[in-house]
Protein backbone atom coordinates (compact mmCIF):
# COMPACT_ATOMS: atom_id res chain seq x y z
CA UNK A 1 0.00 0.00 0.00
CA UNK A 2 1.42 3.37 -0.93
CA UNK A 3 0.96 6.52 1.12
CA UNK A 4 -1.46 8.04 -1.38
CA UNK A 5 -3.91 5.15 -1.14
CA UNK A 6 -3.49 4.97 2.62
CA UNK A 7 -4.33 8.66 2.92
CA UNK A 8 -7.48 8.12 0.92
CA UNK A 9 -8.78 5.58 3.41
CA UNK A 10 -7.71 7.74 6.31
CA UNK A 11 -9.60 10.89 5.25
CA UNK A 12 -12.69 10.55 7.51
CA UNK A 13 -10.64 9.96 10.66
CA UNK A 14 -7.99 12.47 9.72
CA UNK A 15 -10.64 15.12 9.15
CA UNK A 16 -12.24 14.28 12.49
CA UNK A 17 -8.90 14.69 14.24
CA UNK A 18 -8.32 18.02 12.51
CA UNK A 19 -11.83 19.17 13.35
CA UNK A 20 -11.32 18.32 17.02
CA UNK A 21 -8.08 20.33 17.03
CA UNK A 22 -9.47 23.34 15.22
CA UNK A 23 -13.21 23.25 16.03
CA UNK A 24 -13.74 24.72 12.60
CA UNK A 25 -14.83 22.88 9.46
CA UNK A 26 -12.92 24.96 6.96
CA UNK A 27 -9.75 25.02 9.07
CA UNK A 28 -10.09 21.23 9.37
CA UNK A 29 -10.29 20.99 5.57
CA UNK A 30 -7.13 23.09 5.23
CA UNK A 31 -5.35 21.13 7.92
CA UNK A 32 -6.15 17.81 6.23
CA UNK A 33 -4.87 19.22 2.96
CA UNK A 34 -1.65 20.52 4.53
CA UNK A 35 -1.04 17.23 6.37
CA UNK A 36 -1.64 15.18 3.22
CA UNK A 37 0.69 17.39 1.21
CA UNK A 38 3.43 17.03 3.77
CA UNK A 39 2.88 13.27 4.01
CA UNK A 40 3.16 12.94 0.23
CA UNK A 41 6.30 15.07 0.18
CA UNK A 42 7.84 12.94 2.92
CA UNK A 43 6.61 9.62 1.63
CA UNK A 44 10.20 8.35 1.73
CA UNK A 45 10.33 8.89 5.49
CA UNK A 46 7.35 6.65 6.17
CA UNK A 47 8.53 3.28 7.44
CA UNK A 48 6.67 0.41 5.86
CA UNK A 49 5.14 -1.81 8.50
CA UNK A 50 4.42 1.07 10.89
CA UNK A 51 1.02 2.67 11.20
CA UNK A 52 0.30 5.28 8.58
CA UNK A 53 -2.56 6.76 10.61
CA UNK A 54 -0.31 7.51 13.60
CA UNK A 55 2.31 9.04 11.33
CA UNK A 56 -0.16 11.28 9.52
CA UNK A 57 -1.92 12.34 12.72
CA UNK A 58 1.46 13.37 14.05
CA UNK A 59 2.08 15.43 10.93
CA UNK A 60 -1.34 17.07 11.27
CA UNK A 61 -0.63 17.87 14.92
CA UNK A 62 2.66 19.54 13.96
CA UNK A 63 1.10 21.58 11.18
CA UNK A 64 -1.63 22.66 13.57
CA UNK A 65 0.81 23.74 16.27
CA UNK A 66 3.26 25.43 13.94
CA UNK A 67 1.01 27.10 11.43
CA UNK A 68 -2.71 27.00 11.69
CA UNK A 69 -3.46 27.37 15.37
CA UNK A 70 -2.07 30.87 15.70
CA UNK A 71 -4.07 31.93 12.68
CA UNK A 72 -7.22 30.32 14.02
CA UNK A 73 -6.77 31.96 17.42
CA UNK A 74 -6.34 35.33 15.72
CA UNK A 75 -9.60 34.81 13.87
CA UNK A 76 -11.35 33.74 17.06
CA UNK A 77 -12.62 30.28 17.84
CA UNK A 78 -16.09 29.49 19.09
CA UNK A 79 -17.54 26.21 20.15
CA UNK A 80 -19.54 24.74 17.34
CA UNK A 81 -22.57 22.67 18.31
CA UNK A 82 -22.96 19.48 16.33
CA UNK A 83 -26.09 20.70 14.57
CA UNK A 84 -24.53 23.96 13.48
CA UNK A 85 -21.48 22.13 12.28
CA UNK A 86 -23.80 20.08 10.08
CA UNK A 87 -22.48 16.89 11.56
CA UNK A 88 -25.68 15.33 12.78
CA UNK A 89 -25.96 11.77 11.60
CA UNK A 90 -29.44 11.11 10.29
CA UNK A 91 -29.49 7.63 11.80
CA UNK A 92 -30.95 6.98 15.24
CA UNK A 93 -33.96 8.34 17.06
CA UNK A 94 -34.30 11.88 18.36
CA UNK A 95 -33.32 10.97 21.88
CA UNK A 96 -30.10 9.21 20.96
CA UNK A 97 -29.25 12.04 18.54
CA UNK A 98 -29.81 14.55 21.31
CA UNK A 99 -27.59 12.60 23.65
CA UNK A 100 -24.91 12.21 21.03
CA UNK A 101 -24.98 15.95 20.30
CA UNK A 102 -24.66 16.66 24.00
CA UNK A 103 -21.66 14.38 24.37
CA UNK A 104 -20.07 15.91 21.28
CA UNK A 105 -20.64 19.49 22.48
CA UNK A 106 -19.28 18.70 25.93
CA UNK A 107 -16.10 17.16 24.54
CA UNK A 108 -15.64 20.01 22.07
CA UNK A 109 -16.01 22.53 24.89
CA UNK A 110 -12.98 21.08 26.67
CA UNK A 111 -9.65 22.91 26.38
CA UNK A 112 -7.65 21.78 23.38
CA UNK A 113 -5.12 19.74 25.39
CA UNK A 114 -7.89 17.77 27.07
CA UNK A 115 -10.14 17.18 24.09
CA UNK A 116 -7.16 16.03 22.02
CA UNK A 117 -6.24 13.51 24.72
CA UNK A 118 -9.85 12.31 24.87
CA UNK A 119 -9.99 11.85 21.11
CA UNK A 120 -6.70 10.00 20.90
CA UNK A 121 -7.31 7.66 23.83
CA UNK A 122 -11.07 7.13 23.92
CA UNK A 123 -11.94 7.47 20.24
CA UNK A 124 -8.78 6.52 18.35
CA UNK A 125 -7.72 3.87 20.86
CA UNK A 126 -4.21 5.17 21.60
CA UNK A 127 -2.59 3.83 24.75
CA UNK A 128 -1.51 6.48 27.26
CA UNK A 129 2.07 5.90 26.13
CA UNK A 130 1.18 6.34 22.46
CA UNK A 131 -0.75 9.52 23.23
CA UNK A 132 2.22 10.80 25.23
CA UNK A 133 4.54 10.22 22.28
CA UNK A 134 2.09 11.84 19.88
CA UNK A 135 1.72 14.92 22.06
CA UNK A 136 5.37 14.92 23.16
CA UNK A 137 4.42 15.11 26.82
CA UNK A 138 5.06 12.81 29.79
CA UNK A 139 2.63 9.93 30.23
CA UNK A 140 1.59 11.37 33.61
CA UNK A 141 0.46 14.53 31.84
CA UNK A 142 -1.75 12.49 29.52
CA UNK A 143 -3.33 10.85 32.55
CA UNK A 144 -3.94 14.14 34.29
CA UNK A 145 -5.47 15.63 31.14
CA UNK A 146 -7.79 12.64 30.92
CA UNK A 147 -8.65 13.01 34.60
CA UNK A 148 -9.47 16.71 34.13
CA UNK A 149 -11.53 15.95 31.03
CA UNK A 150 -13.40 13.16 32.78
CA UNK A 151 -14.14 15.42 35.72
CA UNK A 152 -15.72 18.04 33.48
CA UNK A 153 -17.60 15.60 31.28
CA UNK A 154 -18.91 13.70 34.26
CA UNK A 155 -20.22 16.77 36.06
CA UNK A 156 -21.99 17.93 32.94
CA UNK A 157 -23.39 14.56 32.12
CA UNK A 158 -24.66 14.06 35.62
CA UNK A 159 -26.22 17.49 35.56
CA UNK A 160 -27.50 17.50 32.00
CA UNK A 161 -28.47 14.17 30.53
CA UNK A 162 -27.37 11.63 33.11
CA UNK A 163 -24.94 10.24 30.60
CA UNK A 164 -22.90 8.59 33.27
CA UNK A 165 -23.19 4.84 33.08
CA UNK A 166 -23.84 3.11 36.40
CA UNK A 167 -20.54 2.56 38.08
CA UNK A 168 -19.60 -1.03 37.47
CA UNK A 169 -16.83 -2.57 39.40
CA UNK A 170 -14.13 -4.01 37.23
CA UNK A 171 -12.60 -7.34 38.02
Amino acid sequence: MNVRDGLDRLLPRLWRFCFVLSRDRSVADDLVQAACLRALEREGQFQAGTRLDRWVFRIAQTVWLNQLRAEKVRRGAGVVPLEEAGLVDAGGDAESNFYRNQVFSDVMALPEAQRTAVLLVYVEGYSYQEAAEHLEIPIGTVMSRLASARGKLSVRHNGAVAGCAPLAKRG
Partner: peptide
Amino acid sequence: VRAAFDAVAAAA
Protein backbone atom coordinates in the same frame (compact mmCIF):
# COMPACT_ATOMS: atom_id res chain seq x y z
CA VAL B 1 -17.93 9.50 23.30
CA ARG B 2 -16.82 7.04 20.64
CA ALA B 3 -20.31 6.90 19.12
CA ALA B 4 -20.58 10.70 19.00
CA PHE B 5 -17.24 11.02 17.26
CA ASP B 6 -17.90 8.15 14.89
CA ALA B 7 -20.76 10.31 13.66
CA VAL B 8 -18.26 13.14 13.10
CA ALA B 9 -15.99 10.92 10.99
CA ALA B 10 -19.00 9.73 9.03
CA ALA B 11 -19.87 13.36 8.27
CA ALA B 12 -16.39 14.27 6.99
